[in-house]
Design a protein around this nucleic acid. Structure first.
Lengths: 247, 247
DNA sequence: CGATCAGTTGATGGGAGTCAAACGGTGTGG
DNA sequence: CCACACCGTTTGACTCCCATCAACTGATCG
């Protein structure tokens, strides 16, 4: 399903989500910026629904998502699915200092997704990159822990609000959206499998949030109309979850 | 089988959970075994309910749990609690090659807990230790992902079965129990906060499992009477979750 | 011996799942 | 160009799993 790359702008525009996200941790060296921009020469694009990583694969090649949405997930034998996280532009896939022996989970494209190969970044791991990977790993774990709280102890209403806030902050960090206004091409089915709810109930919960004046969504454009309320009802903990540039 | 009584007599008996667990990944070098046994000279014991790690702490000192049960958890403002994992003898706390800037979560003792300081292990990180830490990190993540599936997509019955199987395998790997028979001093309240259920429903679910002839528990001694059935109803994936010695 | 804690049981209610059908948009083929 | 299928969304009716409230038991303990 991989097809030739359509490059619309310069490579630096292509890599900007990765640069923005990493730069959010701490300013990148000029050398690293250049190195990352160089990754943009090797892109790969897959269609929605494509498998990015097969669970149990040996040595999947590390990459960054530069466009589109993906997710990591597990399926149960009877068809039930659970998403572990949503992957947005700027996120890595298999990007770790320590190549895990086996891929921990399946990864699937939720929309058309463009990736860039990141293996050269990890060939000689510089001290700067090592530090960045540690920060990414810490943030990834933090997101997983937040996800566990959502699924275990929050209502559908709270879960949905929490996730929408989290996504906005992450998209903002990657520079592909704003904390309270972003393009959201995820189907309610995927959202249901992320939030541990049924499709029908996700739909009703979103409409309840809309009726309450907290969100608004037209044709994939999500607007969080009252970020403070959304954060307080979902007990959103900004601490360390995302390195926000501004206070 | 041999009852691994934690006897205060020899340090090697004290450290045996750590040694057994690490040895399960790959045989430890004699030098490392000796080094780990040496950790037993600096123990610390806290009562049930004590806080082991405060969330947000800077640089908590790494340690291994050598006796007792603990957990990592988060609390919501209204008192709801969600456990992230259960920590058993042999598990590390803050043991990582990369000292995270901040502790990701609160850690609490569920029973009286004895720990040993592990900081000397990480002072100069040998290649052997580095490899072990990578394995531990991979397993920890795998457990978190399994936990997410439990909470998001499994029924109370399935969740409980899954957790009981997982715990048995981990206790066996640490040599402080067997996969189908182990001491289980966790209250139903803690179990509820782990499984995302109410105390009452945990109680009912355990009794249902008992009525179905799948488990038996008398005075804290858990017996899994039909491991195969428990694994199949909970879709327990042994793959990589725990390095089982036997095939 | 009262007090507290963990476990147990019953009654009741609600949040979320399931089943079913209809709607609108998009793409495709006759 | 329209018919049709397909996909994602929406809505209603009904069901059920699990939470909540409440009371009671047994064990431990100061």
């Amino acid at each position: 399903m991989m097809r030739p790359t359509v490059r619309r702008a310069g490579p630096q525009a292509l890599m900007s989500p990765v640069l923005a996200r990493l730069n959010g941790f701490s300013p990148l060296s000029a050398a690293l910026v250049e190195q990352i921009e160089g990754l943009g020469r090797r892109t790969e694009t897959v269609a929605a629904g494509a498998t990015l990583v097969e669970a149990g694969d040996l040595a999947t090649r590390p990459c960054f998502i530069v466009d589109g949405w993906a997710c990591r997930l597990r399926m149960l034998p009877d068809g039930r699915r659970q998403l572990f996280n949503l992957l947005i532009p700027g996120d890595g896939l298999g990007v770790s200092i320590h190549p895990h022996p086996l891929a921990q989970s399946h990864a699937t494209a939720l929309t058309r997704v463009t990736t860039v190969d990141a293996s050269v970044l990890l060939d000689p791991v510089s001290e700067e990159i090592r530090r960045l990977m540690v920060r990414i790993a810490a943030q990834d774990e933090s997101l997983l822990l937040g996800h566990i709280v959502r699924l275990g102890r929050q209502t559908a209403y709270e879960r949905t609000a929490h996730l929408l806030v989290e996504i906005g902050r992450r998209l903002q960090a990657s520079g592909v959206g704003e904390a309270a206004a972003y393009h959201f091409p995820v189907t309610q089915e995927a959202l249901a499998d992320m939030l541990g709810l049924s499709i029908v109930h996700v739909n009703r919960t979103l409409q309840q949030l809309r009726r309450d004046g907290l969100i608004d969504m037209v044709r994939g454009e999500m607007h969080l109309l009252n970020l403070d309320t959304l954060m307080s009802i979902s007990d959103f903990q900004p601490s360390g979850a995302v390195p926000t540039p501004q206070a």
